[in-house]
Design a protein around this nucleic acid. Structure first.
Lengths: 124, 124
DNA sequence: TATATTGTTCTATAGAACTATTACAATAAT
DNA sequence: ATTATTGTAATAGTTCTATAGAACAATATA
């Protein structure tokens, strides 16, 4: 289970922060397939946000097939593994990396700093 | 001078992205004391945002003593040395890397793939 | 002086984000 | 069956973000 955290100063909407944390948790293996997430009400209380905010995050992730929800039961990590065509995959990798680099360096971060940080964040 | 970049998908307001990039640019030494910034109109055109959005960013930075403005002349990097706390810089790096990683790995890219691509894209 | 350029301010509009409240629907547990 | 728990939905109101357009103020320049 993730230890959810919200950063009000970041400027990033709460529901997007929740989405990010779940998506990253899944890909980092912190959230296993089929695992139950906190209920919308429980997470709303924990994060001190409105129920609708959590609900919105869960809803978007369900649309993306990251989550599966069962009314009355709960919300779970989805079973569907999404497949992306290889050419598109290559292009996507190049594109997001290039875009990210230009943004990161506009903040004054060097490649080395970035890579070092990514390596830390990538540990399981 | 900074190569300004806006990321509409990040969820961070435009004016905040501009603020961030200038502040980090200053602390990284990319923007020198007394250096003139683009005019509000020029930057607005470059970033394809409204004049008021840039103006808002500049105004906040003037309040923070990062910038000094002279009506009719332009906007300049202030003479008061602003240090961005190491922790804040760390947090920003962590934040953008984490967000990027969550997106990248949701496409199924491994850390190694990502880093390898970044190293290629980072060559000049 | 006249004109252009710069930043500033104001109004109006639109949409997103978030909260609050209430109610409804599906499932599980008793 | 009844109750509790879960997710869902609808409405309303506030704040924030961003745009568009217009006008104003200060400075530099021709």
């Amino acid at each position: 289970m993730i230890d959810f955290k919200l950063d009000p100063k970041s400027g990033v909407p709460f529901y997007r922060q929740v989405i990010d944390q779940i998506r990253y948790g899944v890909s980092a293996g912190k959230l296993k397939i089929g695992e139950q997430l906190p209920t919308v009400r429980a997470l709303a209380v924990e994060l001190k946000v409105n129920l609708n905010t959590v609900s919105k995050a869960y809803r978007e992730l369900e649309i993306q097939n990251v989550l599966e929800t069962q009314q009355g039961t709960g919300t779970f990590i989805g079973h569907i593994k999404i497949q992306i065509p290889k050419e598109e995959r290559e292009r996507k990798l190049t594109s997001i990396c290039s875009e990210f680099l230009s943004i990161a360096s506009s903040y004054g971060f060097s490649i080395d700093e970035i890579i070092s940080q990514l390596q830390q964040g990538g540990r399981k």
